[in-house]
């Protein structure tokens, strides 16, 4: 009996030893040199593998960072400025601070605002409904409401509001990776500059129809009346294809356009209750 055990131990032990030796030599022979900094940088990155940087996964991004001459144009939206500063330190390069962004859903076509004119029956995915037709309402530009963006978000930063049928972005969780922007077949979601206290002013509409049909399809559609364009002193507003657009990098959050908009298509969020207008101007100046 003890003989058998001894034999087993000897045989298995020697097989294991031989395998270990072979493995060692093989791994030496086929060793591929890799810049050790890649590993260090990958450690420093958030490791979400979200693809928000434009590379497939954090490892590829780390490789690109090591190879790059300057860090200009390379940004990890998840880690933001702090992570990019760490990376710059490791590589001994200059950090390029890029503006933090946040995803914004530009549609207010809730059940209440947009009457349904047909019933879609089929796969409840925006990308498939979008192929078929304009959607259940007469607005052929707005949100379809099947939540492809929510599905695409890896950070739990989006949910569907059951009352409105529209997706909502949770600002604190959004890392601006852009997955929802890509997932939306109608380009409704946009990455905009992140202001202090998550304050936002944007045209919450993407309808390119003329004012009449747009308004008929949705109560809060942009009708391209030019009022906001005329009131904006900073040149942040452009009107194209029957649609107003506010450039978040030019906008100063003066809120003038919001009061001008006749259809409430321009939305302001997270602002304190309105004070007198002069004070509001003062505030924006101090912010600057």
């Amino acid at each position: 009996m003890s003989h058998t055990i001894l034999l087993t131990v000897i045989v298995l032990g020697s097989v294991g030893l031989a395998a270990a030796v072979i493995l060692y030599f093989v791994s030496q022979k086929f060793k591929v040199y890799e810049d050790p900094r890649i590993d260090i940088i990958q450690e420093a990155l958030p490791g979400a593998n979200c693809g928000g940087c434009g590379f497939t996964g954090c490892r590829n991004f780390a490789e690109a960072l090591v190879k790059a001459d300057t860090l200009d144009g390379l940004n990890c939206p998840v880690g933001g400025a702090t992570v990019m500063a760490d990376v710059a330190k490791i590589l001994g390069k200059e950090a390029v601070v890029s503006e933090p962004l946040v995803a914004v859903v530009r549609c207010q076509g809730s059940y209440e605002h947009r009457p349904r004119t047909s019933a879609y029956d089929g796969v409840k995915e925006c990308r498939i409904a979008h192929l078929l037709y304009g959607g259940e309402t007469d607005c052929h530009y707005g949100c379809l409401g099947y939540g492809d963006c929510v599905e695409a978000c890896q950070f739990g930063a989006m949910y569907m509001d059951e009352k409105t049928g529209l997706p909502v972005v949770i600002d604190e969780k959004c890392v601006a990776c852009g997955a929802c922007v890509k997932a939306c077949p109608r380009n409704i979601i946009e990455l905009r500059k992140k202001f202090k206290k998550d304050r936002k002013i944007y045209v919450s509409c993407v309808n390119c129809d003329r004012g009449g049909p747009a308004r008929k399809a949705c109560k809060v559609a942009c009708i391209a009346c030019n009022k906001c364009f005329n009131v904006c002193k900073f040149g942040a507003i452009t009107i194209q294809n029957n649609l107003a657009y506010i450039d978040s990098f030019k906008c100063t959050l003066c809120r003038k356009c919001v009061t001008e908009c006749p259809t409430s298509a321009i939305v302001e969020l997270n602002f304190p209750p309105r004070k007198a207008e002069e004070e509001a101007v003062k505030e924006t100046l101090t912010q600057k």
Binding site: S118, A119, Y120, G122, I128, L132, Y133
Partner: peptide
């Protein structure tokens, strides 16, 4: 009375 159903072929 009700809305038309739209689906793919």
């Amino acid at each position: 009375s009700s809305l038309l159903t739209v689906s793919q072929s």
